[in-house]
């Protein structure tokens, strides 16, 4: 239905958007909250799943209701608990 209407998926389904620049910068949009935050790992809750960013010296540059920017040496991004 959504595909036939050609509406943006992130808006309709509330899917998270992760934009990674190289390995040191990541933008995450459409998330609901932070579950865990340490220098090695950031766990985020989104509408559909959880996103875990692993790396070193992770650092939240800024942080608003629907967008955040993470900097640091990112080694992996994993998804859990799909629904």
């Amino acid at each position: 239905m959504i595909e036939s209407l050609q509406l943006p998926k992130d808006l309709m389904l509330g899917m998270p958007i992760v934009t990674v620049t190289g390995f040191h910068e990541a933008y995450i949009e459409n998330y609901k909250g932070i579950l865990e935050y340490s220098e090695e790992m950031i766990l985020l809750q989104t509408k559909t799943c959880q996103i875990e960013i692993q790396g070193e010296k992770l650092h939240i540059m800024y942080y608003t209701n629907d967008e955040m920017k993470v900097e640091g040496m990112i080694s992996s991004i994993q998804y859990f608990n799909y629904s």
């Binding site: 935050y37 340490s38 220098e39 992770l58 650092h59 939240i60 540059m61 800024y62 942080y63 608003t64 209701n65």
Partner: peptide, 9 residues
């Protein structure tokens, strides 16, 4: 809608 920045652990 409180803006936080430079969050460090």
């Amino acid at each position: 809608e409180i803006f936080l920045w430079g969050v460090e652990n």
